[in-house]
Design a protein around this nucleic acid. Structure first.
Ligand code: MN
Ligand code: MN
Ligand code: ZN
Ligand code: ZN
Lengths: 150, 150
DNA sequence: ATGTAATTGAGAATTAATCTCGATAATAAC
DNA sequence: GTTATTATCGAGATTAATTCTCAATTACAT
């Protein structure tokens, strides 16, 4: 059993929840795919492989995966949530092009320090952070030079 | 005329748009209120003062204010967008309690440097960033100690 | 094997945001 | 000032992501 599945089963048992094939299918698919995903894409992917899991089950499973630290929500400001698995991956943030939607990932280790400072200053137990930086990539800047401030 | 209104009128003229009392009312209300707001709250506030502006007009005006740098979207991950005016305010980020929703604002000037580094490294024209840090405040931690990892 | 209660799928409900459309009114040209 | 043009308005319909409902199923404990 892959260790993400193991982590999830431990979480399930600890909470008195139930192990179901649907939840396993969804989790497996998430960790087979690299990169970001959204509910609709994940649903279609599973469906394409012959799976019968419903969208409702996906919507119900994702909060569990988030809660046990396997995935996280990612905000691309396009009207719905995206997600990515984080277990086994280096912490990173996203630089997004407002023109074409391209995503560049980058690491910024100093944010870990920031979390610790904030925890101390405001007496918070920090669970995580999200940083989105946005702007225009070279291609979009050239394409769209009518906009001011190019 | 307040300078935020001036900035908006300049923007309007430059774009060949029209000056309307509705847009002015909305902008005025945004800058009279301190703190964060959402569409529904802003609408009710205006209504309470006898204004006749519709929600549709608010939804249409906000992107204009964002575009000319007077306000920005703020993500509190509660299902809809929040906003805050930024003109005349120090750049800041948000620390949010996952229990009670309390927001702490904090400044982190090094993010400006990060923007410059990213602009250079990825050849982006950076327009801004959003950083949310989230966790549990002292009160919620005490209240809810059943959660693991307190 | 049996009882229980968590989980499922399908579709209805909710709700933020956008769109449509006829009426209104801001601006420019005369 | 009058007129023409067309951006903007309000009201309500529409869209789309997410949540909810409920009867049927099934995981798990006994
Ligand atoms: Mn990523
Ligand atoms: Mn703020
Ligand atoms: Zn681009
Ligand atoms: Zn709290």
């Amino acid at each position: 059993m892959t260790s993400e599945l193991q982590i999830f089963q431990d979480y399930i048992r600890q909470r008195g929840l139930r192990r179901t094939p649907e939840r396993e299918e969804i989790l497996r698919e998430i960790f087979e795919v690299h990169g970001h995903f959204d509910v609709d894409g994940l649903y279609l992917q599973l469906k394409g492989k012959g799976s019968k899991v419903s969208k409702a089950s996906i919507y119900r499973a994702l909060p569990l995966f988030i809660d046990c630290g396997l995935i996280r929500e990612v905000d691309f400001s396009d009207g719905h949530w995206h997600y990515e698995h984080i277990y086994g991956h280096a912490d990173h943030n996203h630089l997004r092009c407002l023109g074409c939607g391209e995503i560049q990932e980058f690491e910024e280790p100093t944010l870990q320090l920031l979390e610790e400072q904030l925890a101390h200053k405001y007496h918070y137990q920090i669970k995580g952070h999200q940083l989105q930086v946005y702007g225009y990539c070279t291609a979009c800047r050239l394409k769209d030079w009518g906009r001011q401030g190019v």
